[in-house]
Design a binder for these strands. Structure first.
Lengths: 343, 343
DNA sequence: GAAATTTTTTCAAACGTTTGCATTCAATAT
DNA sequence: ATATTGAATGCAAACGTTTGAAAAAATTTC
């Protein structure tokens, strides 16, 4: 019976009539092991496909080399870019990434964290779910903190936690976007807002509002409509905007997806972009450069955020006892393309 | 000194002057434990934030409840949809997903698999890297097979392995796409092909070729150009196509990204879509429904593939000894939109 | 009040590996 | 021939948990 039980160090020891210690040392090139013994054991190990059981080592050394990544979703360009960034830095260092998707649910987030802790994950990257954020829950984070497991916030953060965080400067990105529209000469700028309560939504919204204020432009409640970040969630809101008695002459979308949805609706209505209506998105997703017209947007360095977050984690890990949390805020950058360039 | 060493069962045992066994049983509601003892221990455990060390359990039970997902990239809509599908089924069952990105590199793939096996992952979902596929390497899979760790191929497969696999019927999808273009009346259909050697590229290419053959249409080498799936890789090839003495009147892109790139170039050249040139993509990515004109494409059920792959894994896991690998081929489905509807 | 029974707790082994210390054995030095 | 050295290997504990079997304690029975 070709049992599939993995070969252990004991099996090898039995085969060579020696102790497990000897096998262990032989496999690890310990100098105190006889050259012949070493070679024989190594050869045999290779032959039978021995592979060290890392689980037992984890138990022994209390090192699992695994990290948790807890995010609301992975079906956006930005989120995957962040994960790629984490990966780029951490995979080469031997870390394994455990991805947990919360679907914006508090319960799933709580369970994910608990599971990660039980698995003795060595660090957790967390972008809190909307539900968590809305409700202001934070108890589930206490145990992470208490365990002193490094916890790095990504994008969505709690102000009152002593943890490191890596975020993009959404506020100034949004501000720059709106300022750009104003500088071109657009007068009635609408905003397709993201879900209420999320930092990213609110920061961009604040950027939008404050920029309008700065330039003494009226703030019209009817030009601000919610979306859920998805392209289809922009369709109806945009239609409503364009049917207003006094419709906007520009739209600032909370991300590229909704801006592209808006673009579609505007074109369907026969409006010319950017002549009749200006458009700006957020994210600088790959597609945004190739829409027609190409979409003015705000670049959001997802990969870089992932890499910076990794750095923050490593700092905390290697830091001496007097660890001080760091906050990294990466600048977002306006990318001007055709959809806003009315001349 | 507020040590962060996690509380163990032994700590609790010491506190209650009882044996670890009692604590273990108390925490697991074992019936043989005195009611008072149980309550006291459970209360105390909660108070000090005891959390079972799953690593030790993994060692004991040889069950890690973790699964490997090895993919070339996670920055495409399709790949993330697959992962979401896996997640949807497997996370509720208590599995943790270890995501490994290979960047199409054989070496990284090999290392990832080896790592997963060392970590005693209970199953592996693999979409082989292009390098692996090109070179026809397969030795690194032997150890997975030998360990009898369930291995499920996703999309890209090796014909000669006794493993389950879940793939999309790319061939017929491509065939249907081209047939549709022909039925509309397009005569010179170009193909923006994916990278050579990859199953998805080649299957779609084959569908394209065979469809042309079936309808006795000429196969023009100059209308077939390679891309790398990314939107920008479609720009130059499309330009070249459109500058031909006898340019195509339709383009079938290997995915939505390149089709959208082609759309952009065609529009820049002043061509009307679908009147002057028809366009079809592949994937049915969210954005494809909202381009202007909307993009005819072939739906590729990524989420479903992930869910089916999970099912295959579970079948293999629960199957009796006489496991027979299954092959699931999900149909792809033509989604007709504006970009090909010349009337 | 002793025997029988039931309830509750402890013991010990197991999972796979590493590692400080002890041991063995052979070779060299005296 | 004996003590000394050095090389090679073995022993045992440790990591945290579970679990069958044994032991101890409490309760019931006659």
């Amino acid at each position: 019976m070709n049992s599939s039980r993995p070969v252990t160090i004991k099996d090898i020891a039995r085969r060579f009539r020696c102790s497990p210690s000897t096998v262990s040392r032989a496999l690890n090139d310990h100098p105190a092991i006889n050259e012949d013994t070493r070679k024989n054991i190594q050869e045999y190990a290779k032959e039978v496909g021995y592979q060290r059981n890392e689980v037992s080592l984890s138990l022994l050394n209390k090192k699992t080399a695994s990290l948790g990544v807890v995010v609301p979703t992975i079906s956006n360009y930005y989120e995957t870019a962040v994960i790629e960034g984490l990966h780029t830095v951490l995979q080469p260092m031997g870390y394994t990434l455990n991805i947990c998707v919360t679907n914006e649910s508090y319960l799933l987030e709580k369970e994910s964290l608990s599971k990660l802790l039980s698995n003795r994950t060595e660090g957790i990257f967390l972008s809190v779910s909307q539900e968590t954020y809305d409700a202001g829950y934070y108890e589930h984070l206490e145990s992470v903190i208490q365990r002193k497991t490094p916890l790095i916030f990504i994008d969505r953060e709690y102000e009152d936690f002593e943890t490191s965080r890596a975020t993009v400067d959404d506020y100034h990105g949004a501000f720059a976007a709106v300022e750009h529209l104003i500088s071109i000469g657009y007068k009635q700028i609408a905003h397709l807002k993201g879900p209420n309560g999320l930092t990213v939504s609110e920061q961009r919204f604040k950027g939008y509002i404050n920029c309008l204020k700065k330039y003494n432009m009226p703030i019209r409640e009817d030009l601000i409509i919610n979306t859920n970040f998805k392209v289809e969630s922009a369709i109806l809101p945009t239609k409503r905007l364009l049917e207003l008695a006094s419709p906007p002459d520009a739209i600032f979308g909370v991300n590229d997806q909704v801006a592209i949805g808006a673009m579609r609706v505007a074109k369907d209505k026969g409006l010319r972009i950017p002549q009749d209506i200006g458009l700006v998105g957020f994210d600088n997703s790959p597609i945004s450069a190739y829409t027609f017209p190409s979409l003015t947007t705000v670049h959001r360095p997802g990969r870089k955020i992932g890499m910076e977050a990794s750095r923050l984690f490593l700092n905390q890990l290697n830091g001496s006892g007097d660890f001080a949390p760091e906050s990294i805020v990466l600048p977002s950058e306006l990318v001007i393309r055709e959809s806003s360039l009315r001349i």
